[in-house]
Computed example of a mutant assay.
Amino acid sequence: MGFLKDKALAAIGELMVNKIPFNRHIGLEFDSVSDDLCVIKFAMKPELVGNYFQGILHGGVTSASLDMVGGTMAAVGVLNDNPATHLAKLKEKLTKLSTIDIRVDYLRPGKGETFYAKARLLRTGSKIAVVRMELVNEKGTQIAVATGTYLVG
């Protein structure tokens, strides 16, 4: 990747994760982001427990992390479609990015110490992006999968 592209990807990370108080509250942070894959990680902590008796991750945290990584990947799709876009223009486009629909399939209880939400872009157009996401724990056990549709234009 070129210097400007790396800078744009870093800007997406700053806007999508670090500037949103809820994301900071639940502990989301970037692991990696590229043209093909975005990974966000977070550690299990007592505030994220949904089933107190089993100590498993709350379903809302699962959904929120998948939505966040999906939206971030949709933002990368905007960048890929407009590689020459100036950072100010990119930030302006990202202010309009929003979730249209997300479907989450919960496959297993959210057991683990660290979780990784991963996203891959399925399609991006001038108005809509479609993203496939998954949540795994530190052992690679798949916890949930999701498909999200995002407004990008």
Rank of each mutant, 00 (worst) to 15 (best):
K91D: 10
R132F: 09
N137D: 10
T141D: 15
V17S: 04
G13W: 08
H58R: 07
N80I: 11
E113K: 14
S126E: 12
E134K: 06
R123Q: 06
S126P: 10
A64N: 03
R103D: 11
M68T: 14
A75K: 01
V136F: 06
D36H: 10
S34H: 08
G148K: 01
T149E: 03
E29D: 12
A74P: 00
Y116D: 00
E29I: 09
N18L: 12
A119Q: 02
V69M: 02
F30L: 15
G50Y: 02
T99H: 03
L66S: 07
T114F: 14
H86F: 11
K45F: 05
P109K: 05
L9E: 05
L122E: 10
F115I: 03
V17A: 05
I40G: 05
M73K: 08
G70R: 00
R123D: 00
I128R: 03
M133K: 08
Y116C: 02
K127E: 11
G148T: 01
G77T: 05
E29V: 11
K93D: 11
S63A: 15
L90H: 04
D35R: 09
P21A: 02
I100G: 06
K7W: 12
L79W: 00
I56D: 10
E134H: 01
N137C: 05
T95Q: 15
A117F: 01
I56C: 12
D35F: 08
V49A: 05
T147E: 09
A11G: 14
I128H: 03
E113P: 08
A117W: 01
G60Y: 01
D36N: 11
T72F: 04
L57Q: 09
F42W: 06
F22V: 13
T62V: 15
V61F: 06
L87I: 14
S63G: 14
E14C: 07
K45G: 12
S126T: 14
I26V: 15
I56A: 10
G59Y: 05
S98N: 11
A144C: 03
V104G: 03
A43S: 12
L94W: 04
G148V: 01
L107Y: 06
G110V: 02
C38L: 14
L94S: 09
L4Q: 13
K118C: 10
I20H: 07
E113Y: 09
H58V: 09
L97H: 04
L87Y: 00
I143P: 07
